[in-house]
Design a binder for these strands. Structure first.
Lengths: 201, 201
DNA sequence: CAATAAAATGACCGTATGGTCAGTGACAAG
DNA sequence: CTTGTCACTGACCATACGGTCATTTTATTG
């Protein structure tokens, strides 16, 4: 069924509001984010916000939902598509770094989002955990195949997530000059050196 | 010169206020932290807060100042005291983990503190950077001595800081069961495997 | 074009909270 | 005991902000 003109306009408004909200929440956090400012940024009046979202909290959740879902999905896709463990690690770091560069504002929100919104935290922390656990499974399998050293798969997977996040943050703060590919290569190489059984002398 | 009774009481008040503020800011962040709540937690009236601090921002900064200074100092002491690179890495991870366990509230604030208080950010980011750069120097030196592989010292130092921070966060969130010593040993071992020149097969 | 419906607006309201200050009382000095 | 000082108090104020809704603007229909 074709979209009516109203639906198109409504979709456009909705995403304009989400973009504005992302910008403002990234700048000031949840508690500090001001709805008047979001409305202005979106080019509408404050009252209009309430035609599309129930209130501040729902708006915030809508931003997080959308962006985290996207990040989770693209990470899973690329990690699962990779054939070898090393490629999976490279894929993981690269997707995250690319996302970090492309959607700075969302990553700023992610950093703050450590404890707020306790109600829905389980949901979000699942979305964070899932890709890491896919990595962990691949690591465990590589260990059992004897491809790499005997390491605790889950811990290592989280370590990979941690150094990737750190690299992204340093990029967001303006340090670190190279391309995301270079950064991903470096990270993958570092981790691989820790996993390798016996590098040639 | 001996402290007068007033000075003793004043010191006590001051630190009670700092403790209360740390608790509340850790729970609700800067924007959400309520001065009435801090006063109640400290067992004083709100007006009294203003006898000891100029306002909300100064109070927040006082907490961060005190705790970050302490963390920076204890990290530097222990890292610099360690003789070998491996011991320095172990020292770094261990102090941070110990601090993470002992001062959960401060670390929760740290996590949130990514962009607020832009004025003083340079100050704080120096305090974060300094210990990492001591590590980096030790790594660079070990590289030039041929003790470890040829790695980019600064990057590796930040990677160590990143995995340590991640480990602390997972502990704060209630996952991860072992002692801080076990965790530190694991992290050190992981990093060392990545740095080692040629492990015996 | 008129009539009607739908969408958007922004002035307005209530509440929460950072900050103030006139008043209180505990304590020290004499 | 009296007096003066000063840390302390909490009622109070001003402001900011989330949320509402009567009114206005825009779109649709006949």
């Amino acid at each position: 069924m074709k979209k009516t003109k109203q639906e198109i306009v409504a979709d456009y408004r909705r995403s304009a509001i989400l973009d504005a909200a992302r910008t403002v929440f990234a700048r000031r956090g949840f508690a500090g984010g001001i709805l008047d400012e979001i409305a202005q940024e979106a080019g509408i009046a404050k009252g209009t916000l309430y035609l599309y979202f129930k209130g501040k909290e729902e708006l915030y959740k809508a931003v997080l939902d959308h962006d985290m879902r996207t990040l989770r999905q693209s990470t899973l896709n690329r990690v699962d598509a990779a054939a070898t463990l090393r490629e999976k690690i490279a894929a993981f770091t690269l997707v995250r770094l690319q996302n970090g560069d492309a959607r700075r504002e969302f990553f700023r929100i992610m950093d703050q989002e450590q404890q707020n919104l306790t109600m829905t935290r389980t949901q979000y922390s699942d979305w964070v955990r899932e890709p890491v656990e896919h990595l962990a499974a691949a690591i465990a399998e590589a260990v059992s195949r004897g491809e790499i050293r005997d390491v605790p798969a889950e811990k290592v997977a989280w370590n990979i997530a941690d150094i990737t996040r750190g690299a992204i943050q340093r990029r967001l703060m303006g340090r670190s000059s190279g391309t995301v590919e270079e950064e991903s290569d470096y990270l993958t190489g570092f981790v691989w050196a820790a996993l390798e059984k016996s590098p040639a002398p």
